[in-house]
Amino acid sequence: MRTFLSRFLPELTPVSKRERLRSAAGALVGILATGLVCRASVPAEALPILIAPMGASAVLLFAVPASPLAQPWSILGGNLVAALVGVTAAAWIADPFVAAACAIGVAIALMMLLRCLHPPSGAVALTAVLGGPATHALGYGFVLWPVGANSLILLATALLFNNLTGRTYPHHRPAGPRTADPPSGARVGFRAADLDAALEEFDQLLDVDRSDLEQILRRVQMRVYGRSSGPMTCAAIMSRDVIAVAPEAPLSEALRLLRRHRIKALPVTDERARVLGIVTQTDLLDKAAWDRSGPRLGLGRRLLLTAERGRAPHGCAADIMTAVEPVGPDMPIAVLVPRMSEAGLHHLPVVDADGRLIGIVSQTDLIPALLAEAGAPEAPARIHTPAQPVPA
């Protein structure tokens, strides 16, 4: 009986308690902000303040913000299109149930055509048809208020809340190098064209971004590789004689260290050797302005840092460093490779249990390690055979 009932339960992606709490808190803040702003904008007795489909939109925007169905164009375009279709159907079709069916069917077709599919928009179309005299009296004004206003305020809240709590919204993958070559992680294993062909054969809409699906599959691929490879870890390949720089060191000092030691990255550490970030050649090229005296902070970078920190920058290493998450010495290189590839990093600091810098791993260190593992002979299989009878 339990097995039969389990077929009706969806297999949701496992998430942490923190993520569950963030989703619930986001929906609470989003609906509350939408209701309060709309109530303050118009008299309560004049127009509807909050429509029910916004609750479903809140689930998507705050619980699954990475979904293609939860992106800004999805909620704005989907809700407005569905409202237009619903109002038109209510005006031209006398039977409310026929009008409701036509409204939802046409709305889905248009949303898929315009790439703004948003499931709660089906409820918006239904509300426009079956909302009663108050809704019908609004006519096409229903599209702007409450549908447009509710959608816009809820979206604005989602943009603020998700980004302030550590999510990237609208959802997108970090941009890679602007060259014709595919990203380094996509040059082995399956190709992007293989995934596109498989999705075309599947021929069903998936509630997951295509790039996310590719990233998940490549992580699975690297985990399979990790099981088949040896237990080589960061400790075996890392550079231990690491040149670091203090966060308050001038940009000219960082440049001098890179040139003097012929290296391409400098971990930024505090007085306890704890890693704060990393300064690379790319950071000096992209985040600093140059003149005859060397690198310095440009006006645009200074204004940006001042707005972020609430104080003026000092033109030091901390002002251009890249935030990184260090790794431990026991991390297998099969886990390290996809982490560096996905983040677009060429160097990662290695820290001990107390967070102190003990080494650094570069892509140059990884190449011979991966080649060595690829060429390592496999252990001979142990075949157990029944004992042969001893001849008399």
Rank of each mutant, 00 (worst) to 15 (best):
S41G: 12
S41H: 03
S41M: 14
V42C: 11
V42M: 13
V42E: 13
V42R: 11
P43N: 10
P43I: 00
P43V: 02
P43M: 02
E45A: 14
E45S: 13
E45G: 07
A46I: 10
A46W: 14
A46C: 11
A46T: 15
L47P: 02
L47W: 14
L47C: 07
P48W: 07
P48T: 11
I49L: 15
I49W: 03
L50W: 10
I51D: 06
I51P: 11
I51A: 08
I51N: 08
A52D: 15
A52N: 14
P53W: 08
P53S: 13
P53L: 06
M54G: 10
M54N: 09
M54F: 13
M54T: 10
G55I: 11
G55N: 10
G55K: 07
G55F: 10
G55R: 06
G55S: 10
A56C: 12
S57W: 09
S57I: 04
S57V: 06
A58P: 08
A58Y: 05
A58W: 03
A58K: 05
V59K: 00
V59D: 01
V59I: 14
V59W: 02
L60S: 09
L60Q: 05
L60V: 05
L61W: 10
L61F: 11
L61G: 12
F62R: 05
F62A: 03
F62I: 09
F62V: 14
A63Q: 02
V64E: 00
P65W: 00
P65Y: 01
A66I: 02
A66F: 01
S67Q: 09
S67T: 03
S67V: 02
P68F: 00
P68G: 07
L69E: 03
A70P: 12
A70I: 01
A70N: 08
A70L: 03
Q71K: 13
Q71C: 07
P72W: 05
P72F: 06
P72L: 04
W73L: 13
W73N: 03
W73T: 06
W73S: 13
S74V: 01
S74W: 00
I75T: 04
I75N: 04
I75K: 03
L76H: 02
L76E: 04
G77D: 07
G77A: 04
G77V: 08
G77T: 06
G77M: 05
G78D: 09
G78F: 05
G78Y: 01
G78R: 00
N79D: 09
N79K: 02
N79H: 12
N79A: 14
L80F: 10
L80H: 09
L80V: 15
L80C: 10
L80T: 13
V81I: 15
V81T: 14
V81W: 01
V81C: 09
V81P: 03
A82H: 07
A82Y: 06
A82D: 06
L84F: 12
L84G: 15
L84T: 13
L84M: 13
L84V: 11
V85N: 06
V85K: 04
V85I: 15
V85P: 09
G86F: 08
G86Y: 05
G86L: 05
G86H: 07
V87T: 03
T88L: 15
T88A: 15
A89G: 09
A89I: 01
A90N: 12
A90Q: 12
A90W: 05
A90M: 07
A90P: 12
A91H: 11
A91E: 09
W92R: 00
W92N: 00
W92L: 15
W92H: 04
W92K: 00
I93P: 11
I93A: 03
I93T: 05
I93E: 05
A94S: 13
